[in-house]
């Protein structure tokens, strides 16, 4: 007999795989780590299929799961997944084209990396996953108000850290380190 849970999971998997892999690759330094996060996130989703929300909330929920998996991973609590070499290889492909590594971007990336995890995650969810406040609130299971406040603070801290590092945006929003002439 066909299990409706299986059909549902496969549909969600197909729909969200691209987004969840992008999420993991953007946040992991190595393809192996990203593959672990992807595998563990979908494993958790399968185990908790009964909680998987319908429609487009599914991907938000998965972002929330992936976020927790990532946090556990950073604490060394995620067991290495038994995965196929193909998955590792596919993830590795995504690491080939490194993001623009201009001087200014490197400086910004350094400041960005120095932010507290929570700040970085909020700013990333906005800039990388393109989520709005409401979607972030859903993904993280907190109120919109909390997202608003935390986002505001994250932006403020990022701005401050950029200023301290001497990085400032140009009027055209191209980015150069302070002190360099245009």
């Amino acid at each position: 007999m066909d299990d409706p849970r299986l059909a549902r999971f496969e549909a969600v998997y197909r729909e969200t795989y691209g987004q969840i892999t992008a999420y993991a690759v953007r946040r992991c330094d190595s393809p192996q780590d990203a593959a672990d996060i992807v595998a563990e996130t979908f494993t958790v989703a399968w185990r908790r299929i009964g909680e998987l929300p319908p429609g487009e909330e599914a991907v938000l929920w998965l972002y929330g799961v992936a976020r927790n998996v990532l946090a556990n991973h950073r604490r060394g609590e995620v067991r290495r997944q038994a995965r196929s070499v193909e998955l590792d290889a596919e993830m590795a492909d995504l690491y080939g084209a490194a993001p623009d590594s201009g001087v200014a971007l490197t400086a910004i990336a350094e400041v960005f990396r120095s932010l507290p995890d929570d700040d970085r995650e909020l700013l990333s969810l906005v800039a990388w996953e393109g989520l709005d406040r409401h979607q972030i609130a859903t993904a993280l299971g907190v109120s919109r108000n909390a997202v608003r406040i935390r986002l505001h603070r994250a932006r403020r801290r990022f701005s401050r850290a950029l200023a301290e590092a001497g990085v400032r945006p140009t009027p055209e929003s191209r980015l150069v380190p302070a002190g360099r002439s245009l």
Partner: peptide, 15 residues
């Protein structure tokens, strides 16, 4: 400033 830092460009899928 943050967008270009993404290894997989915003809006694009990973695998």
């Amino acid at each position: 400033m943050v967008r270009p830092l993404a290894r997989v460009a915003p809006g694009r899928h990973g695998g």
